[in-house]
């Protein structure tokens, strides 16, 4: 294909992305060094936004919570997703149907899923999970205290996103050749040894991939917090993105400082992804 044809066909999409993704991103960078009240032009204020954020306990709490949340959820997602994928791979019947059912929770709008999920823990709706815990004499006020609320959010995110990890790992398991496993069996490897030395190394790239996607998504957590713990800032479940919403669009209309949070979030995302990007880089260069 000639370069002219290439640009003729892809021009509209490139122009669209330049106008609606690149330019807004540049505006965000610019705003982060400005004081921008809604509807007015920004006034340059140097590093004031960043200085205010980095000394604000509210921002620090939101950042610590968001990063901790992303790391915990990602770890659990990989482990549980791998276990479910193994189970699915072994199941005798109906694997396609099971996959469809799992994917439904991933596709249902997050807002709706979060609402329905939280009802299981809400006594107003009969709270079936609480009734189950009653059997063991355990009582938890999910929506009143910090750690139970955080646990609830984490459980929701796992429920919502594990299917994605399952799908990826399952596809990897299906695509694995039988020979290495047979060879391992002949050498007398037990189940754990086969997992540890044959299957997990073969799925390594997929694990990296799921981690990257998961960290990116968890750092952006917004919908479920707005639904499950609307009073997030008092409950200790405020994430970076719900903080942006409050500060830029809800409580106050400070687009400049909201943009600075966005930029710090981008930097944080990059920092957390460095180990994974490095392993991909080494993969790509054939060193391991």
């Amino acid at each position: 294909m000639r370069t002219r044809t290439f640009f003729a066909l892809s021009g509209p999409a490139i122009a669209l992305m330049a106008a609606l993704l690149v330019i807004p991103l540049i505006a965000t960078i610019q705003w982060s060094f400005q004081n921008v009240p809604v509807g007015e032009a920004g006034v340059f204020n140097g590093l004031d936004n960043y200085r205010e954020l980095l000394t604000s306990p509210r921002f620090r709490d939101a950042a610590v919570f968001t990063v901790g949340f992303a790391l915990v959820v990602t770890t659990l997602k990989v482990v549980l997703g791998y276990i479910v994928a193994l189970t699915l791979h072994k199941a005798r019947h109906g694997r396609a149907i099971f996959l469809g059912i799992l994917l439904a929770t991933y596709v249902v709008p997050t807002v709706v899923g979060a609402l329905d999920f939280s009802w299981l823990f809400n006594d107003i709706f009969g709270g079936p999970v609480n009734r189950f815990l009653d059997l063991f004499g355990v009582q938890i006020d999910w929506l009143v205290n910090e750690w139970p609320a955080r646990a609830l959010l984490a459980m929701h995110m796992l429920w919502h996103e594990i299917p994605f990890a399952v799908l990826i790992f399952y596809a990897g398991l299906q695509g694995m050749p039988d020979e290495p496993l047979e060879a391992a069996s002949l050498d007398g490897a037990n189940w754990f040894q086969k997992q540890r030395y044959v299957i997990i190394p073969a799925l390594g790239r997929l694990v990296t991939f799921v981690c990257v996607i998961s960290i990116m998504d968890a750092l952006k957590i917004f919908d479920s917090i707005r639904i499950i713990t609307p009073a997030a800032s008092q409950l200790g479940t405020e994430s970076l993105m719900t903080y942006v919403f409050q500060i830029a669009l809800n409580d106050s209309y400070r687009l400049g400082i909201g943009s600075a949070v966005n930029l710090l979030t981008i930097i944080l995302t990059l920092v957390l992804l460095i180990p994974f990007l490095r392993s991909t880089w080494r993969d790509a260069r054939g060193i391991s």
Partner: peptide, 25 residues
Amino acid sequence: LLVLALVFRALPRFAVVLPFYEASR
């Protein structure tokens, strides 16, 4: 260009949506 497009997958939505908000007003 494809990889650049992909970078936007990692960005928080608000990084483009806050300017959208101003522009749409």
